[in-house]
Nucleic acid binder design. Structure first.
Length: 492
RNA sequence: CGGGAUGUAGCGCAGCCCGGUAGCGCGCUUCGUUCGGGACGAAGAGGCCGCAGGUUCGAAUCCUGUCAUCCCGACCA
Protein backbone atom coordinates (compact mmCIF):
# COMPACT_ATOMS: atom_id res chain seq x y z
CA UNK A 1 0.00 0.00 0.00
CA UNK A 2 1.50 3.30 -1.01
CA UNK A 3 1.17 6.15 1.40
CA UNK A 4 -1.03 9.14 1.56
CA UNK A 5 -4.37 10.26 0.21
CA UNK A 6 -5.12 13.38 -1.78
CA UNK A 7 -6.44 16.02 0.61
CA UNK A 8 -10.18 16.59 0.73
CA UNK A 9 -9.64 20.31 0.43
CA UNK A 10 -7.56 19.88 -2.75
CA UNK A 11 -9.73 17.43 -4.65
CA UNK A 12 -12.64 15.85 -2.85
CA UNK A 13 -13.48 13.53 -5.66
CA UNK A 14 -9.91 12.22 -6.02
CA UNK A 15 -9.81 11.80 -2.25
CA UNK A 16 -12.93 9.64 -2.37
CA UNK A 17 -11.73 7.47 -5.24
CA UNK A 18 -8.34 6.88 -3.67
CA UNK A 19 -9.80 6.21 -0.26
CA UNK A 20 -12.10 3.52 -1.59
CA UNK A 21 -9.11 1.78 -3.14
CA UNK A 22 -6.56 2.32 -0.40
CA UNK A 23 -8.91 1.27 2.38
CA UNK A 24 -9.42 -1.95 0.45
CA UNK A 25 -13.14 -1.45 0.01
CA UNK A 26 -13.58 -1.90 -3.73
CA UNK A 27 -11.95 -1.56 -7.10
CA UNK A 28 -12.97 -1.23 -10.71
CA UNK A 29 -13.47 -4.46 -12.59
CA UNK A 30 -12.82 -5.67 -16.09
CA UNK A 31 -16.43 -4.84 -16.88
CA UNK A 32 -16.98 -1.16 -17.38
CA UNK A 33 -19.08 0.43 -14.67
CA UNK A 34 -19.05 -2.64 -12.46
CA UNK A 35 -17.06 -2.97 -9.26
CA UNK A 36 -15.35 -5.67 -7.30
CA UNK A 37 -16.26 -5.29 -3.64
CA UNK A 38 -13.23 -6.45 -1.72
CA UNK A 39 -13.40 -8.50 1.49
CA UNK A 40 -12.99 -5.54 3.83
CA UNK A 41 -15.62 -3.50 2.01
CA UNK A 42 -17.96 -6.44 1.82
CA UNK A 43 -17.63 -7.03 5.57
CA UNK A 44 -19.02 -3.55 6.15
CA UNK A 45 -21.88 -4.22 3.74
CA UNK A 46 -22.61 -7.48 5.55
CA UNK A 47 -22.87 -5.60 8.81
CA UNK A 48 -25.32 -3.18 7.23
CA UNK A 49 -27.30 -6.06 5.79
CA UNK A 50 -27.44 -7.88 9.10
CA UNK A 51 -28.86 -4.89 10.93
CA UNK A 52 -31.31 -3.88 8.20
CA UNK A 53 -32.47 -7.47 7.86
CA UNK A 54 -33.10 -7.60 11.58
CA UNK A 55 -35.12 -4.36 11.37
CA UNK A 56 -37.16 -5.64 8.42
CA UNK A 57 -38.00 -8.84 10.25
CA UNK A 58 -38.88 -6.94 13.38
CA UNK A 59 -41.45 -5.03 11.31
CA UNK A 60 -42.99 -8.25 10.02
CA UNK A 61 -41.24 -8.79 6.70
CA UNK A 62 -39.79 -12.03 5.37
CA UNK A 63 -37.20 -12.61 2.69
CA UNK A 64 -37.76 -14.29 -0.66
CA UNK A 65 -36.01 -14.32 -4.00
CA UNK A 66 -37.27 -13.44 -7.46
CA UNK A 67 -35.49 -13.95 -10.79
CA UNK A 68 -32.77 -11.79 -12.26
CA UNK A 69 -34.43 -11.79 -15.68
CA UNK A 70 -37.65 -10.02 -16.55
CA UNK A 71 -39.63 -10.71 -19.74
CA UNK A 72 -39.54 -7.57 -21.81
CA UNK A 73 -43.33 -7.40 -22.02
CA UNK A 74 -43.62 -7.07 -18.23
CA UNK A 75 -41.74 -3.83 -18.22
CA UNK A 76 -44.18 -2.13 -20.53
CA UNK A 77 -47.24 -3.02 -18.45
CA UNK A 78 -46.92 0.11 -16.34
CA UNK A 79 -46.39 3.13 -18.57
CA UNK A 80 -44.61 5.47 -16.16
CA UNK A 81 -42.42 2.66 -14.91
CA UNK A 82 -41.08 1.67 -18.32
CA UNK A 83 -40.55 5.32 -19.14
CA UNK A 84 -38.35 5.64 -16.06
CA UNK A 85 -36.08 2.69 -16.72
CA UNK A 86 -36.11 1.96 -20.46
CA UNK A 87 -32.97 3.99 -21.15
CA UNK A 88 -30.74 2.01 -18.85
CA UNK A 89 -31.70 -1.62 -19.26
CA UNK A 90 -29.37 -4.48 -20.17
CA UNK A 91 -31.10 -6.87 -22.54
CA UNK A 92 -30.53 -10.60 -23.04
CA UNK A 93 -31.23 -11.58 -26.63
CA UNK A 94 -29.58 -15.01 -27.03
CA UNK A 95 -29.06 -18.11 -24.95
CA UNK A 96 -26.12 -19.85 -26.59
CA UNK A 97 -22.57 -19.36 -27.84
CA UNK A 98 -20.69 -21.38 -30.40
CA UNK A 99 -17.14 -21.65 -31.64
CA UNK A 100 -16.42 -18.96 -34.17
CA UNK A 101 -15.84 -19.96 -37.80
CA UNK A 102 -12.19 -18.89 -37.75
CA UNK A 103 -11.62 -21.04 -34.67
CA UNK A 104 -10.71 -18.01 -32.64
CA UNK A 105 -12.90 -17.94 -29.55
CA UNK A 106 -16.67 -17.96 -29.35
CA UNK A 107 -19.47 -16.00 -31.00
CA UNK A 108 -23.16 -15.60 -30.25
CA UNK A 109 -25.10 -18.34 -32.02
CA UNK A 110 -27.58 -16.50 -34.25
CA UNK A 111 -29.84 -19.57 -34.19
CA UNK A 112 -30.24 -19.18 -30.44
CA UNK A 113 -32.25 -15.98 -30.45
CA UNK A 114 -34.81 -15.68 -27.67
CA UNK A 115 -38.40 -15.30 -28.80
CA UNK A 116 -38.91 -12.69 -26.17
CA UNK A 117 -35.90 -10.76 -24.91
CA UNK A 118 -35.17 -10.79 -21.22
CA UNK A 119 -34.30 -7.65 -19.28
CA UNK A 120 -31.77 -7.82 -16.49
CA UNK A 121 -33.79 -6.39 -13.60
CA UNK A 122 -33.28 -2.70 -12.93
CA UNK A 123 -35.78 -3.26 -10.06
CA UNK A 124 -38.29 -6.04 -9.55
CA UNK A 125 -41.76 -4.53 -9.26
CA UNK A 126 -42.92 -6.15 -12.47
CA UNK A 127 -41.84 -9.75 -11.84
CA UNK A 128 -42.97 -9.53 -8.27
CA UNK A 129 -46.42 -8.14 -9.04
CA UNK A 130 -46.95 -10.72 -11.76
CA UNK A 131 -46.24 -13.32 -9.07
CA UNK A 132 -48.38 -11.61 -6.44
CA UNK A 133 -51.33 -11.96 -8.78
CA UNK A 134 -51.19 -15.71 -8.11
CA UNK A 135 -50.61 -15.36 -4.39
CA UNK A 136 -53.40 -12.95 -3.57
CA UNK A 137 -57.08 -13.83 -3.76
CA UNK A 138 -58.56 -12.84 -0.45
CA UNK A 139 -58.17 -10.19 2.22
CA UNK A 140 -56.85 -13.13 4.26
CA UNK A 141 -53.76 -13.19 2.02
CA UNK A 142 -52.96 -9.61 2.98
CA UNK A 143 -50.85 -7.90 3.91
CA UNK A 144 -48.03 -9.53 2.00
CA UNK A 145 -44.74 -8.25 3.40
CA UNK A 146 -41.73 -9.41 1.41
CA UNK A 147 -38.16 -8.29 1.00
CA UNK A 148 -35.40 -9.54 -1.24
CA UNK A 149 -31.65 -9.04 -1.19
CA UNK A 150 -30.43 -8.94 -4.75
CA UNK A 151 -28.28 -7.37 -7.41
CA UNK A 152 -29.75 -5.08 -10.03
CA UNK A 153 -28.39 -3.51 -13.20
CA UNK A 154 -28.88 0.02 -14.46
CA UNK A 155 -26.70 0.81 -17.42
CA UNK A 156 -25.25 4.08 -16.24
CA UNK A 157 -23.13 6.26 -18.49
CA UNK A 158 -20.89 7.60 -15.79
CA UNK A 159 -20.11 5.53 -12.75
CA UNK A 160 -18.31 5.89 -9.43
CA UNK A 161 -17.44 3.18 -6.95
CA UNK A 162 -20.40 2.59 -4.63
CA UNK A 163 -22.14 5.86 -5.51
CA UNK A 164 -23.23 4.84 -8.98
CA UNK A 165 -22.31 1.53 -10.55
CA UNK A 166 -23.91 -0.34 -13.43
CA UNK A 167 -24.54 -3.33 -11.18
CA UNK A 168 -25.22 -2.82 -7.51
CA UNK A 169 -26.41 -4.76 -4.50
CA UNK A 170 -29.51 -3.76 -2.63
CA UNK A 171 -32.60 -4.90 -0.88
CA UNK A 172 -36.03 -4.24 -2.27
CA UNK A 173 -39.13 -4.59 -0.16
CA UNK A 174 -42.43 -5.18 -1.96
CA UNK A 175 -45.63 -5.19 0.01
CA UNK A 176 -49.31 -5.55 -0.82
CA UNK A 177 -52.16 -4.29 1.34
CA UNK A 178 -55.93 -4.28 1.51
CA UNK A 179 -56.28 -0.58 2.17
CA UNK A 180 -54.73 2.60 0.98
CA UNK A 181 -54.08 3.73 4.52
CA UNK A 182 -52.21 0.57 5.40
CA UNK A 183 -49.97 0.80 2.33
CA UNK A 184 -49.34 4.47 3.00
CA UNK A 185 -48.41 3.73 6.61
CA UNK A 186 -46.09 0.96 5.46
CA UNK A 187 -44.17 3.24 3.12
CA UNK A 188 -43.86 5.91 5.80
CA UNK A 189 -42.78 3.29 8.34
CA UNK A 190 -39.99 2.02 6.09
CA UNK A 191 -38.70 5.53 5.54
CA UNK A 192 -38.42 5.80 9.31
CA UNK A 193 -36.69 2.42 9.51
CA UNK A 194 -34.11 3.65 7.02
CA UNK A 195 -33.64 6.93 8.86
CA UNK A 196 -33.22 5.09 12.15
CA UNK A 197 -30.61 2.82 10.57
CA UNK A 198 -28.70 5.70 8.99
CA UNK A 199 -28.60 7.71 12.18
CA UNK A 200 -28.10 5.03 14.84
CA UNK A 201 -25.80 2.68 12.96
CA UNK A 202 -24.12 4.64 10.20
CA UNK A 203 -23.94 7.76 12.32
CA UNK A 204 -25.29 9.76 9.39
CA UNK A 205 -28.03 12.30 10.16
CA UNK A 206 -30.73 12.37 7.49
CA UNK A 207 -33.68 14.49 6.48
CA UNK A 208 -36.92 12.58 6.08
CA UNK A 209 -39.02 13.90 3.29
CA UNK A 210 -41.14 13.52 0.20
CA UNK A 211 -39.81 13.71 -3.35
CA UNK A 212 -41.16 16.23 -5.79
CA UNK A 213 -43.09 14.84 -8.73
CA UNK A 214 -40.13 14.91 -11.08
CA UNK A 215 -37.82 13.15 -8.64
CA UNK A 216 -40.44 10.56 -7.74
CA UNK A 217 -39.95 6.86 -8.57
CA UNK A 218 -41.44 5.93 -11.93
CA UNK A 219 -44.72 4.20 -11.17
CA UNK A 220 -45.15 5.53 -7.63
CA UNK A 221 -47.78 7.93 -6.35
CA UNK A 222 -45.53 9.20 -3.61
CA UNK A 223 -41.84 8.67 -2.87
CA UNK A 224 -40.51 9.12 0.66
CA UNK A 225 -36.78 9.46 1.08
CA UNK A 226 -33.93 10.05 3.44
CA UNK A 227 -31.42 12.64 2.32
CA UNK A 228 -27.93 13.03 3.74
CA UNK A 229 -25.38 15.80 3.31
CA UNK A 230 -21.79 14.88 2.52
CA UNK A 231 -18.68 16.71 3.73
CA UNK A 232 -18.26 18.51 0.42
CA UNK A 233 -21.72 20.04 0.68
CA UNK A 234 -23.40 17.78 -1.85
CA UNK A 235 -26.54 15.85 -1.06
CA UNK A 236 -26.89 12.10 -1.29
CA UNK A 237 -30.16 10.23 -1.47
CA UNK A 238 -29.61 7.38 0.94
CA UNK A 239 -32.88 5.47 0.74
CA UNK A 240 -36.33 5.62 -0.81
CA UNK A 241 -39.72 4.19 0.07
CA UNK A 242 -42.56 4.33 -2.42
CA UNK A 243 -46.30 4.38 -2.00
CA UNK A 244 -47.35 2.71 -5.26
CA UNK A 245 -51.08 3.24 -4.91
CA UNK A 246 -52.84 0.68 -7.06
CA UNK A 247 -50.63 1.27 -10.10
CA UNK A 248 -48.95 -2.12 -10.21
CA UNK A 249 -52.07 -3.94 -9.04
CA UNK A 250 -53.81 -2.38 -12.01
CA UNK A 251 -51.02 -3.23 -14.43
CA UNK A 252 -50.81 -6.85 -13.28
CA UNK A 253 -54.45 -7.29 -12.35
CA UNK A 254 -53.92 -8.10 -8.69
CA UNK A 255 -57.31 -8.15 -6.96
CA UNK A 256 -58.58 -9.50 -3.67
CA UNK A 257 -62.00 -10.30 -2.27
CA UNK A 258 -62.81 -8.28 0.83
CA UNK A 259 -64.98 -9.45 3.76
CA UNK A 260 -68.12 -8.67 1.81
CA UNK A 261 -66.87 -10.67 -1.15
CA UNK A 262 -66.33 -7.54 -3.21
CA UNK A 263 -63.28 -7.56 -5.55
CA UNK A 264 -60.84 -4.70 -5.29
CA UNK A 265 -57.31 -3.87 -6.44
CA UNK A 266 -54.62 -4.19 -3.77
CA UNK A 267 -52.41 -1.32 -2.63
CA UNK A 268 -48.65 -1.57 -2.87
CA UNK A 269 -45.35 -0.24 -1.63
CA UNK A 270 -41.72 -0.79 -2.48
CA UNK A 271 -38.59 0.43 -0.73
CA UNK A 272 -34.87 0.01 -1.07
CA UNK A 273 -31.38 0.88 0.01
CA UNK A 274 -28.27 -0.11 -1.86
CA UNK A 275 -24.50 -0.37 -1.70
CA UNK A 276 -24.68 3.36 -2.23
CA UNK A 277 -24.96 3.52 1.54
CA UNK A 278 -21.30 2.56 1.54
CA UNK A 279 -20.56 5.77 -0.32
CA UNK A 280 -22.57 7.76 2.21
CA UNK A 281 -20.74 6.10 5.07
CA UNK A 282 -17.35 6.83 3.56
CA UNK A 283 -18.05 10.44 2.70
CA UNK A 284 -19.84 11.31 5.91
CA UNK A 285 -17.04 10.69 8.40
CA UNK A 286 -13.67 9.99 6.82
CA UNK A 287 -10.68 12.34 6.88
CA UNK A 288 -7.38 12.93 5.10
CA UNK A 289 -5.80 9.97 6.91
CA UNK A 290 -8.42 7.55 5.69
CA UNK A 291 -11.69 5.94 6.58
CA UNK A 292 -13.51 6.66 9.83
CA UNK A 293 -16.03 3.94 10.63
CA UNK A 294 -18.81 3.97 13.20
CA UNK A 295 -18.12 1.24 15.79
CA UNK A 296 -21.49 -0.38 15.11
CA UNK A 297 -20.54 -1.14 11.50
CA UNK A 298 -16.78 -1.60 11.78
CA UNK A 299 -15.67 -5.12 10.82
CA UNK A 300 -12.80 -4.72 13.28
CA UNK A 301 -13.74 -2.61 16.29
CA UNK A 302 -10.46 -2.91 18.16
CA UNK A 303 -7.03 -3.68 16.78
CA UNK A 304 -4.10 -4.55 19.00
CA UNK A 305 -0.60 -3.73 17.72
CA UNK A 306 2.34 -5.23 19.58
CA UNK A 307 5.64 -3.38 19.87
CA UNK A 308 8.88 -5.20 20.52
CA UNK A 309 12.53 -5.53 19.53
CA UNK A 310 13.80 -8.77 20.88
CA UNK A 311 12.17 -12.16 20.68
CA UNK A 312 11.64 -12.27 24.48
CA UNK A 313 9.77 -8.99 24.23
CA UNK A 314 7.64 -10.31 21.38
CA UNK A 315 6.66 -13.32 23.44
CA UNK A 316 5.90 -11.32 26.57
CA UNK A 317 3.86 -8.70 24.72
CA UNK A 318 1.95 -11.33 22.75
CA UNK A 319 1.02 -13.18 25.89
CA UNK A 320 -0.48 -10.08 27.45
CA UNK A 321 -2.13 -9.07 24.17
CA UNK A 322 -3.79 -12.45 23.86
CA UNK A 323 -5.25 -12.01 27.32
CA UNK A 324 -6.73 -8.69 26.25
CA UNK A 325 -8.13 -10.24 23.07
CA UNK A 326 -9.91 -12.90 25.11
CA UNK A 327 -11.19 -10.36 27.59
CA UNK A 328 -12.56 -8.03 24.89
CA UNK A 329 -14.04 -10.79 22.77
CA UNK A 330 -15.87 -12.12 25.80
CA UNK A 331 -18.14 -9.06 25.66
CA UNK A 332 -18.80 -9.50 21.96
CA UNK A 333 -16.29 -7.05 20.53
CA UNK A 334 -14.64 -7.76 17.23
CA UNK A 335 -10.93 -7.68 18.00
CA UNK A 336 -7.91 -8.24 15.82
CA UNK A 337 -4.45 -8.89 17.22
CA UNK A 338 -2.05 -7.99 14.45
CA UNK A 339 1.02 -10.00 15.34
CA UNK A 340 2.49 -10.01 11.84
CA UNK A 341 6.23 -9.77 12.06
CA UNK A 342 6.46 -8.53 8.48
CA UNK A 343 5.37 -4.96 9.16
CA UNK A 344 6.52 -2.40 11.66
CA UNK A 345 4.20 -0.79 14.23
CA UNK A 346 4.22 2.58 12.45
CA UNK A 347 3.17 0.92 9.24
CA UNK A 348 0.34 -0.86 11.00
CA UNK A 349 -0.84 2.36 12.66
CA UNK A 350 -1.12 4.01 9.26
CA UNK A 351 -2.86 1.01 7.76
CA UNK A 352 -5.56 0.76 10.45
CA UNK A 353 -6.12 4.48 10.26
CA UNK A 354 -6.66 4.10 6.52
CA UNK A 355 -9.13 1.31 7.22
CA UNK A 356 -11.00 3.28 9.86
CA UNK A 357 -10.67 0.87 12.79
CA UNK A 358 -12.31 2.84 15.65
CA UNK A 359 -9.97 1.86 18.48
CA UNK A 360 -6.31 0.88 18.43
CA UNK A 361 -4.46 -0.57 21.37
CA UNK A 362 -0.66 -0.48 21.20
CA UNK A 363 1.41 -2.37 23.70
CA UNK A 364 5.14 -2.66 24.17
CA UNK A 365 7.75 -3.47 26.83
CA UNK A 366 7.23 -0.13 28.58
CA UNK A 367 3.53 -0.90 28.93
CA UNK A 368 4.26 -4.30 30.39
CA UNK A 369 6.42 -2.63 33.01
CA UNK A 370 3.78 -0.07 33.89
CA UNK A 371 0.80 -2.36 33.38
CA UNK A 372 -0.73 -0.05 30.77
CA UNK A 373 -1.80 0.00 27.16
CA UNK A 374 -1.89 2.90 24.73
CA UNK A 375 -5.43 3.53 23.52
CA UNK A 376 -5.92 5.58 20.34
CA UNK A 377 -9.32 6.57 18.99
CA UNK A 378 -9.68 6.96 15.24
CA UNK A 379 -12.26 9.74 15.17
CA UNK A 380 -10.27 12.38 17.06
CA UNK A 381 -6.83 10.68 16.91
CA UNK A 382 -6.48 11.19 20.67
CA UNK A 383 -4.20 8.82 22.54
CA UNK A 384 -4.09 7.93 26.20
CA UNK A 385 -2.49 5.36 28.47
CA UNK A 386 -4.91 3.18 30.35
CA UNK A 387 -4.31 0.40 32.91
CA UNK A 388 -4.41 -2.96 31.15
CA UNK A 389 -6.61 -4.65 33.74
CA UNK A 390 -10.20 -5.93 33.94
CA UNK A 391 -11.55 -2.39 33.81
CA UNK A 392 -10.11 -1.96 30.31
CA UNK A 393 -13.08 -3.78 28.77
CA UNK A 394 -15.55 -1.27 30.14
CA UNK A 395 -13.23 1.55 29.14
CA UNK A 396 -13.19 0.31 25.54
CA UNK A 397 -16.95 -0.25 25.47
CA UNK A 398 -17.53 3.29 26.71
CA UNK A 399 -15.02 4.64 24.23
CA UNK A 400 -16.74 2.89 21.32
CA UNK A 401 -20.07 4.34 22.40
CA UNK A 402 -18.48 7.74 22.61
CA UNK A 403 -16.99 7.42 19.12
CA UNK A 404 -20.35 6.33 17.69
CA UNK A 405 -21.97 9.37 19.26
CA UNK A 406 -19.18 11.76 18.39
CA UNK A 407 -19.11 11.05 14.68
CA UNK A 408 -22.89 11.45 14.51
CA UNK A 409 -22.72 14.74 16.39
CA UNK A 410 -19.95 15.95 14.14
CA UNK A 411 -21.88 15.08 11.01
CA UNK A 412 -25.01 16.72 12.39
CA UNK A 413 -23.13 19.89 13.27
CA UNK A 414 -21.69 19.98 9.80
CA UNK A 415 -25.12 19.61 8.24
CA UNK A 416 -26.58 22.32 10.43
CA UNK A 417 -23.78 24.68 9.48
CA UNK A 418 -24.39 23.93 5.83
CA UNK A 419 -28.15 24.39 5.90
CA UNK A 420 -29.17 27.86 4.81
CA UNK A 421 -32.60 29.44 4.38
CA UNK A 422 -32.77 31.91 1.49
CA UNK A 423 -35.50 34.22 0.21
CA UNK A 424 -34.23 35.44 -3.13
CA UNK A 425 -32.98 33.70 -6.24
CA UNK A 426 -29.73 35.71 -6.21
CA UNK A 427 -29.01 34.61 -2.67
CA UNK A 428 -29.95 31.06 -3.62
CA UNK A 429 -27.36 30.98 -6.41
CA UNK A 430 -24.72 32.63 -4.27
CA UNK A 431 -25.15 30.12 -1.42
CA UNK A 432 -25.02 27.19 -3.84
CA UNK A 433 -21.78 28.42 -5.34
CA UNK A 434 -19.99 29.81 -2.33
CA UNK A 435 -21.25 27.88 0.67
CA UNK A 436 -22.93 24.78 -0.84
CA UNK A 437 -25.03 22.43 1.27
CA UNK A 438 -28.79 22.30 1.81
CA UNK A 439 -30.63 25.45 0.79
CA UNK A 440 -34.12 25.97 2.18
CA UNK A 441 -36.28 27.94 -0.18
CA UNK A 442 -39.89 28.58 -1.07
CA UNK A 443 -41.04 26.89 -4.26
CA UNK A 444 -44.29 27.26 -6.13
CA UNK A 445 -44.80 23.52 -6.42
CA UNK A 446 -44.55 23.31 -10.21
CA UNK A 447 -42.33 20.99 -12.20
CA UNK A 448 -41.60 23.86 -14.64
CA UNK A 449 -39.99 26.00 -11.95
CA UNK A 450 -38.08 23.05 -10.59
CA UNK A 451 -36.75 22.24 -14.06
CA UNK A 452 -35.72 25.84 -14.75
CA UNK A 453 -33.85 26.04 -11.46
CA UNK A 454 -32.17 22.74 -12.17
CA UNK A 455 -31.03 23.91 -15.58
CA UNK A 456 -29.77 27.23 -14.36
CA UNK A 457 -28.06 26.10 -11.15
CA UNK A 458 -27.70 22.28 -11.31
CA UNK A 459 -29.51 22.15 -7.98
CA UNK A 460 -32.48 19.85 -7.52
CA UNK A 461 -35.19 19.60 -4.94
CA UNK A 462 -33.87 16.91 -2.63
CA UNK A 463 -37.12 16.67 -0.76
CA UNK A 464 -40.01 18.38 0.92
CA UNK A 465 -39.16 17.68 4.56
CA UNK A 466 -41.79 15.83 6.60
CA UNK A 467 -41.41 18.28 9.44
CA UNK A 468 -41.26 21.47 7.38
CA UNK A 469 -43.21 24.14 9.27
CA UNK A 470 -46.07 25.92 7.54
CA UNK A 471 -44.76 29.33 6.58
CA UNK A 472 -46.16 31.91 4.20
CA UNK A 473 -43.69 32.92 1.50
CA UNK A 474 -43.14 33.39 -2.20
CA UNK A 475 -41.33 31.13 -4.65
CA UNK A 476 -37.75 32.30 -5.13
CA UNK A 477 -38.05 31.76 -8.89
CA UNK A 478 -41.59 32.64 -9.89
CA UNK A 479 -42.69 34.83 -6.98
CA UNK A 480 -45.90 32.81 -6.65
CA UNK A 481 -47.17 32.03 -3.16
CA UNK A 482 -45.79 29.05 -1.24
CA UNK A 483 -46.63 27.57 2.13
CA UNK A 484 -43.40 25.82 3.07
CA UNK A 485 -39.72 25.66 2.31
CA UNK A 486 -38.23 22.73 0.41
CA UNK A 487 -34.62 21.55 0.36
CA UNK A 488 -32.52 22.30 -2.67
CA UNK A 489 -28.96 21.05 -3.19
CA UNK A 490 -26.52 19.85 -5.76
CA UNK A 491 -26.58 16.10 -5.45
CA UNK A 492 -24.65 12.94 -6.17
C1' C B 1 -23.73 10.48 -28.74
C1' G B 2 -20.68 15.56 -28.91
C1' G B 3 -15.70 17.99 -26.81
C1' G B 4 -10.68 16.86 -24.60
C1' A B 5 -6.86 13.48 -23.19
C1' U B 6 -4.23 8.90 -22.30
C1' G B 7 -2.53 3.61 -23.36
C1' U B 8 5.36 1.73 -21.61
C1' A B 9 6.89 -3.74 -15.21
C1' G B 10 1.74 -5.28 -10.14
C1' C B 11 0.78 0.40 -9.27
C1' G B 12 2.24 5.63 -10.56
C1' C B 13 5.03 7.76 -14.40
C1' A B 14 9.46 9.47 -17.77
C1' G B 15 11.35 8.41 -22.65
C1' C B 16 8.41 9.96 -28.28
C1' C B 17 9.63 16.51 -31.15
C1' C B 18 15.20 14.74 -32.97
C1' G B 19 14.26 6.48 -34.94
C1' G B 20 19.80 3.09 -32.82
C1' U B 21 21.20 -1.37 -25.49
C1' A B 22 13.57 0.10 -22.28
C1' G B 23 14.25 3.68 -17.69
C1' C B 24 12.65 6.04 -12.67
C1' G B 25 9.67 5.88 -7.97
C1' C B 26 6.61 2.63 -5.12
C1' G B 27 5.67 -2.44 -4.46
C1' C B 28 7.91 -7.61 -4.82
C1' U B 29 12.29 -11.49 -3.50
C1' U B 30 16.94 -12.55 -0.48
C1' C B 31 20.45 -11.15 3.41
C1' G B 32 21.89 -7.92 7.35
C1' U B 33 20.90 -3.95 10.72
C1' U B 34 16.12 -2.05 12.56
C1' C B 35 11.07 -2.10 15.26
C1' G B 36 6.82 3.35 20.73
C1' G B 37 4.08 6.82 13.84
C1' G B 38 4.46 4.42 6.83
C1' A B 39 12.98 2.12 8.54
C1' C B 40 17.97 1.69 6.12
C1' G B 41 21.81 -0.68 3.22
C1' A B 42 23.33 -4.30 -0.28
C1' A B 43 22.01 -7.77 -3.96
C1' G B 44 18.01 -9.52 -7.26
C1' A B 45 13.34 -10.72 -10.16
C1' G B 46 9.99 -8.54 -13.28
C1' G B 47 8.30 -5.66 -20.31
C1' C B 48 5.17 -8.78 -27.46
C1' C B 49 6.03 -0.03 -25.11
C1' G B 50 -2.82 -1.32 -26.21
C1' C B 51 -3.58 -4.02 -31.07
C1' A B 52 -2.99 -4.35 -36.63
C1' G B 53 -0.77 -2.61 -40.85
C1' G B 54 2.90 0.68 -43.23
C1' U B 55 7.78 3.66 -43.86
C1' U B 56 12.97 2.26 -42.67
C1' C B 57 18.97 -1.46 -42.51
C1' G B 58 16.52 -0.53 -37.81
C1' A B 59 10.16 1.81 -34.72
C1' A B 60 8.06 2.68 -27.76
C1' U B 61 9.50 6.88 -30.97
C1' C B 62 7.30 8.60 -37.73
C1' C B 63 2.46 7.44 -40.82
C1' U B 64 -2.51 4.98 -41.28
C1' G B 65 -6.22 2.32 -39.06
C1' U B 66 -8.37 0.12 -34.87
C1' C B 67 -9.60 -1.06 -29.80
C1' A B 68 -9.78 0.39 -24.83
C1' U B 69 -9.82 3.61 -20.73
C1' C B 70 -10.27 8.36 -18.26
C1' C B 71 -12.06 13.52 -17.86
C1' C B 72 -15.94 17.39 -19.37
C1' G B 73 -21.32 17.77 -21.32
C1' A B 74 -27.10 15.26 -21.90
C1' C B 75 -29.44 10.73 -18.16
C1' C B 76 -29.46 8.54 -13.13
C1' A B 77 -30.37 4.82 -6.47
Amino acid sequence: MSKGLPKRSDDYSAWYNELVKKADLAENSAVRGCMVIKPYGFSIWEKMQAELDRMFKETGHTNAYFPLFIPKSYLSREADHVEGFAKECAVVTHYRLKNSADGDGVVVDPDAKLEEELIVRPTSETVIWSTYKNWIQSYRDLPLLINQWANVVRWEMRTRLFLRTAEFLWQEGHTAHATKQEAWDESVQMMHVYAEFAESFMGVPVIRGIKSESERFAGAEETFCIEALMQDGKALQAGTSHFLGQNFAKAFDVKFADKEGKLDLVWGTSWGVSTRLMGALIMAHSDDEGLVLPPKLAPIQVVIVPIYRKEEERIAVSEKANELVKQLRAVGLSVKFDDRDTHKPGWKFAEYEMKGVPVRLAMGPKDLEKGTVEVARRDTKEKSFVPADDALTQYVLDLLDDIQKNIYDRALKHREELTTPVDTYDEFKRILDEKTGFVLAHWDGTAETEEKIKQETKATIRCIPMDAPEEEGVCIYSGKPSTKRVIFARAY
